[in-house]
Amino acid sequence: MKTQMRSTTTLLGIGAVALLGLTACGDGGGSGDSGGDGGGETSQEESSTAGEESQGMEGSESPSEGMESSDESGEMDPAANLVGSQCSDYAEQVPEGDGSVAGMAQDPVATAASNNPMLTTLTDAVSGELNEEVDLVDTLNGDEFTVLAPVDDAFADIPEEDLNALAEDPQALTDVLTYHVIPGQMSPEEIAGEHETVNGATVTIEGEGEELMFDDAGLVCGGVQTANATVYMIDGVLMPEGDEQ
């Protein structure tokens, strides 16, 4: 019995000492002495520094974001790939509005051409104005193309009798118009070569830059972007074999 009581007393003493030690540790951490104040100041400084670094990271633009913005701005410039000795004349004649370089970029190709005062005869030809049986507007607006677009002066060089005969023959007119259309979009750097047209015949494009030749027609201004096509305005009307007047 005495042995058990002594053991119990010893355990109670050890427990009391442990509780006193824990209480002392708790009081030291929460005291207002210089040691406690120093810890608080360090914590506040670290929090402030972290906040400033976080704000700096949020306010800065990552390199990838900057490149994407630059690339997008380059793609949005419709005059970036223009080529041709008469592009400046085109810009002077149509400096703004739907028929300008910037304006044409907003519409599909048949619609864009209809707004360009240099392409009125071509517009009449593809929209049923020359022959009501020949209306290619939906076709041209419905896919991606490279369009070789004779300017009005090119049609004016065709004898009136021949032009009237072409307009009265819907099959011949369709053959000529679709000979000016190549599936897919091609930039000035990749357009040289032989290309099968929507007509089925092959058009030959030679040279580079301002010296590009489209069969026997020269370049007026090319690389003009529309919503679905790349346009090359040319100074002659191309005739596929068998339709030459």
Rank of each mutant, 00 (worst) to 15 (best):
S187D: 07
G36C: 10
T3G: 07
I182S: 02
V134T: 06
Q4P: 02
L136H: 02
T9F: 10
G28E: 07
G13M: 06
E144N: 12
V181K: 02
P150G: 02
L219G: 04
E160D: 15
G99I: 08
I14Q: 00
F155Q: 10
Q4N: 08
I14M: 07
E132T: 01
D27F: 14
G59L: 13
T23E: 12
C87G: 01
E92N: 14
S70Q: 13
A172R: 10
M57G: 09
T3Q: 12
A91F: 01
A192Q: 12
S31F: 04
A105D: 06
L12M: 14
G29P: 02
A110N: 04
N228E: 11
S62Q: 11
S47H: 10
G74K: 10
E58P: 04
C87Y: 00
L238C: 08
Q44Y: 04
L20A: 15
G32P: 01
Q171V: 14
L12N: 09
A110F: 05
G51S: 15
A110K: 00
D37V: 11
G59A: 15
S62P: 10
D243S: 08
I205S: 02
L136C: 06
V181L: 04
H180I: 08
E244C: 02
L212I: 12
D71K: 11
E210N: 15
G207R: 07
S43I: 01
A167Y: 04
A16S: 14
L238W: 05
T226L: 09
A125T: 10
M76I: 08
H180D: 08
A227V: 00
M213N: 09
N131Q: 08
E133L: 02
S54W: 09
G66L: 15
I234E: 01
M239G: 04
A156F: 10
E206L: 00
T10Y: 02
N141L: 06
G103I: 03
E160P: 03
D162S: 14
S127D: 06
Y179S: 03
E65Q: 12
L130K: 05
D243A: 09
G32C: 01
V17P: 02
T23V: 15
D89C: 06
T146R: 00
G223V: 08
T174A: 05
A80T: 12
L22W: 12
D27E: 14
V147P: 02
T121K: 10
P108E: 11
V94L: 11
L22P: 02
D162W: 05
A125I: 13
L212Q: 05
E41V: 12
E194H: 07
V94N: 13
M213A: 12
N116C: 15
A217W: 00
